[in-house]
Computed example of a mutant assay.
Amino acid sequence: MDWNRVEGNWKQMKGKIKEQWGKLTDDDLDQIAGRREQLEGKIQERYGIAKDRIHREVDDWYERQTWH
């Protein structure tokens, strides 16, 4: 997985991330700034989901993106 593509296109990706995880705020996304660990931590904080499950969900989300 090449997460660098997400980081490099973060402004465009924020909308897609909010579609998947709508509890994340614009401020959350600005703070995350494309960093995967930060994204997973905020999802865990907002949704109360276990870290290993979040990791899988982020992987699944990434795989569904048409640009990778």
Rank of each mutant, 00 (worst) to 15 (best):
R46S: 07
Q65R: 15
Q20T: 15
Q31N: 15
E57Y: 08
M13Y: 05
A50T: 03
E45V: 08
I32G: 00
M1P: 03
K11C: 04
K16L: 14
R46E: 14
D27P: 02
G34T: 02
W67L: 04
W10M: 08
R53S: 08
Y47R: 02
M1T: 09
K11Q: 13
D59R: 11
D28H: 05
G8N: 14
E63A: 03
E19S: 11
E40Y: 14
M1I: 03
K14A: 07
H68M: 10
Q65V: 14
D30E: 14
H55C: 06
V58S: 07
I49R: 00
G41R: 15
Q31M: 10
K11S: 11
E57G: 03
Q65I: 15
D28G: 02
A50Q: 10
Q31Y: 04
R56S: 10
A50R: 07
E63K: 13
N9M: 08
D60N: 14
L29F: 09
Q31G: 11
A50G: 15
D2I: 06
V58Q: 10
K23H: 06
W21L: 02
M13S: 03
I54G: 07
W67K: 03
E19H: 09
H55Y: 13
D59S: 06
D52H: 13
W21S: 00
D59L: 11
N4E: 08
R5L: 15
E7M: 12
W61F: 15
E63D: 12
E57T: 06
R56G: 06
K16E: 11
R5Y: 08
N9L: 04
R35M: 04
E19G: 05
L24W: 00
V6A: 10
V6Q: 01
Q12N: 08
K14H: 03
W61D: 03
E37C: 01
L24C: 04
I32S: 02
I17W: 08
M1R: 00
D27A: 14
I49F: 03
Q31L: 09
Q38L: 09
L29V: 05
R64Q: 14
I43C: 15
D60H: 10
G22T: 04
M13K: 08
K51P: 01
D28E: 03
Y62S: 05
W67H: 08
N9C: 01
I32M: 02
Y62C: 01
H55M: 09
W61I: 09
D52L: 07
R5T: 09
R46Y: 08
D30T: 07
W21K: 00
Q44N: 09
E57A: 11
G48W: 07
Q44W: 05
D2M: 04
T25Y: 05
